[in-house]
Write a protein that binds this DNA or RNA. Structure first.
Lengths: 134, 134
DNA sequence: CACAAAGTCTATCAAATTAGTAGACAATTT
DNA sequence: AAATTGTCTACTAATTTGATAGACTTTGTG
């Protein structure tokens, strides 16, 4: 896996929004300040999540972002996949990002990696942003 | 985690040596051919494992490599750590390669990642090259 | 209406990492 | 002496990562 800071920032930003779910708009500036994220970088990240349908945005004064759906309905897996791609340790056991890799031929290594993939995917799919707030 | 091809190649090479354990020298050329690894690249990889004490080498005609110890005493975790560093999805939950990362502050995210780290580490530490042969 | 405060969008960039290659050298056997 | 095999260091090209820059658009307020 190896999460990029992009994934880490994205999760932190969504946690921030999850904690303000149902109580108006939160600006990039606020999120950046509270979570110590470079503002300009966060802009890009928010844009990606917005386009992917996780956010609602509003421009202008008193604008900002909100989650487009309940924190309990967004899994960490979705966000990490959106930002970083495959959850699997090697692409040759990835469900959504399959690709040939050197170990493709070796059944035992493959099954070892598949077990890891399953654990990670299951864990991150079961955990939602509701679970990370409160 | 995200294994590099370097780790993948290293594992394949060790499996090859594990299968010839106790029966003489195996050349880089043979391993490269059988496992479809670029020979020159494999040279570097073997050198790293040699220096780390996993291999015995012999130069000249009829030379090659052997495992320096039983396949059952070398874990996949050791080799992946040697090649790629941390097994953890984020350094901030890494035991041997700890480093501050953006989520360091967030206890729930941290514990989620720690669970993943534990599963991976445990799995790869329990699996040896003996388990991958036969 | 003007202006300030937001988000939007595309491009660019520097540093690090990855995946390899090149070539000279050293040791060993025949 | 020659062939074979490992050793070592350096280099490189492509990709990814972690941003930054700047122009643009929308929205609310006085």
């Amino acid at each position: 896996m190896k999460l990029s800071t992009k994934s880490e920032y994205a999760c932190l930003a969504l946690i921030e929004l999850a904690e303000h779910y149902g109580s108006g708009w939160v600006t990039i500036e606020d999120i950046a300040r509270r979570q110590h994220i470079p503002k300009k970088y966060l802009e890009n990240i928010m844009l990606i999540m917005n386009r992917a349908g996780y956010l609602i945005s509003k421009r202008g004064i008193h604008g900002g972002y909100q989650l487009s759906k309940e924190p309990g309905s967004i899994s960490i897996a979705e966000i990490v996949r959106l930002m970083d791609g495959a959850l699997a340790p090697v692409r040759s056991v990835s469900k959504y990002y399959y690709e040939h890799t050197p170990i493709t031929q070796n059944k035992r290594l493959l099954s070892l990696m598949a077990d890891i993939r399953d654990y990670i995917a299951n864990k991150l799919e079961k955990t939602t942003f509701k679970d990370l707030t409160g």
